[in-house]
Design a protein around this nucleic acid. Structure first.
Lengths: 69, 69
DNA sequence: ACTTTTTTACTGTTATAGCGGTAAAATGAA
DNA sequence: TTCATTTTACCGCTATAACAGTAAAAAAGT
């Protein structure tokens, strides 16, 4: 388990939003390469760029830990 | 709302784990500057480095959207 | 009080993410 | 099939994140 992959999720959401990689990139204010990399699960992307893309797609990020719960 | 800040959460978890920034950095395999930046909410850090730090602290990341739920 | 530890905040250097451009491969539509 | 669109995968260039030092400021102990 826990082989969750963010890339495919981003791709799926983008598709359902009817956006191309380039359109998403422009909306998020990042380069097309960054969107491509994110969908390819390249984790060396910058956190702020990833956040920008997720924001456009209405994907929220939550952090959880035993202490938080 | 939604002014959630990851930095303080990381710092809190690190403290409760009894780690210094340097120790956490070494455990996560990143430089001390990166840990410092994360705790300062600097979002230009790389996603993989952030993940490494969160992994050490047992902080899980979840992505949610109306489509996912 | 003093001392030690940790954090903050700089540095200069190096590695690489990000960028737009390009072009080939893949996908999809007519 | 053909044609248009999109995605993938390169390229070279530039900007900057990451790094190890260093040192001063802050915090924690004694």
């Amino acid at each position: 388990m826990d082989d969750f992959e963010l890339g495919p999720m981003v791709k799926d959401h983008r598709k359902k939003a009817g956006l191309t990689q380039l359109e998403l990139a422009n909306l998020a204010g990042v380069g097309k390469t960054t969107v491509f990399d994110i969908e390819k699960n390249k984790e060396t992307v910058r956190w702020n760029n990833l956040l920008s893309v997720l924001r456009v797609l209405n994907i929220k990020v939550e952090f959880k830990s035993p202490l938080t719960k």
